[in-house]
Amino acid sequence: MITVERVIAVRRPPAELVAYLADFARTEEWDPGTVRCVRLDEGPVRPGASWRNTSRFRGRTTELRYELVVREPGRLVFVGENRTVRATDVLRFAGEGTGTRLTYRASLAFKGLARLAEPFLRSEFERLGDAVATRLPQAAEAEDL
């Protein structure tokens, strides 16, 4: 399993940042690997809501179906899956002054033969984590919520 974690300062109150990040379709704005993310159902964004996320990594495009499994005032958990990987994104929110300290953890558990590639992919996922830490606050702070 590959796990990448970043602590990110965002100049938005926790409740606003949770509302922004709960809609996984917004990954297009802050995740450099996401090409497209589309909601698969309708209604309020609550546990059970789902999205189809299309990502590009190492020149290849892949799709995962993500579901919001936990939505709490201080925590969001998304789980995405396809035939080769299970991705779990855990976002924790803590007030810090007038903004938020966001702890973002992405874990990838590869399946079958894809597990053999893990040691070779870790550094690239670390670079993606760095890019998320830069882009996410910019996107969230620019958004008129």
Rank of each mutant, 00 (worst) to 15 (best):
M1A: 12
E5I: 02
E5L: 01
R6I: 05
I8S: 04
A9I: 04
V10R: 02
R11S: 13
A15I: 01
A15P: 03
E16K: 10
E16T: 06
V18K: 15
V18S: 13
Y20F: 14
L21C: 12
D23N: 07
D23C: 04
D23P: 02
F24M: 09
R26G: 14
T27D: 09
W30L: 04
P32M: 07
P32W: 14
R36L: 10
C37E: 05
C37P: 00
R39S: 01
R39W: 00
L40D: 03
R46T: 15
P47D: 03
G48K: 11
A49F: 10
A49N: 05
S50K: 12
T54F: 09
S55W: 07
R56N: 12
G59I: 11
T61R: 14
T62L: 10
T62R: 13
T62M: 12
R65Q: 10
Y66A: 01
L68R: 06
V70T: 09
G74T: 14
V77E: 09
F78M: 02
F78Q: 03
V79C: 05
G80L: 04
E81T: 09
V85A: 01
R86N: 02
T88E: 11
T88K: 08
D89A: 13
V90T: 15
L91Y: 12
R92G: 03
R92S: 14
R92E: 15
F93R: 03
F93H: 02
A94N: 04
T100M: 06
R101A: 12
R101Q: 08
L102C: 07
T103V: 13
Y104I: 01
R105D: 00
R105E: 09
S107W: 04
L108D: 00
G112P: 02
L113N: 05
A114K: 09
A114F: 13
L116C: 02
L116W: 00
L116D: 00
A117S: 12
P119F: 06
F120L: 00
F120I: 00
F120D: 00
E126D: 09
E126R: 15
G129E: 01
D130G: 15
A131D: 11
A131L: 15
V132N: 06
V132I: 15
R135Q: 15
L136G: 09
Q138C: 07
A140K: 06
E141G: 06
A142F: 08
E143S: 14
L145S: 07
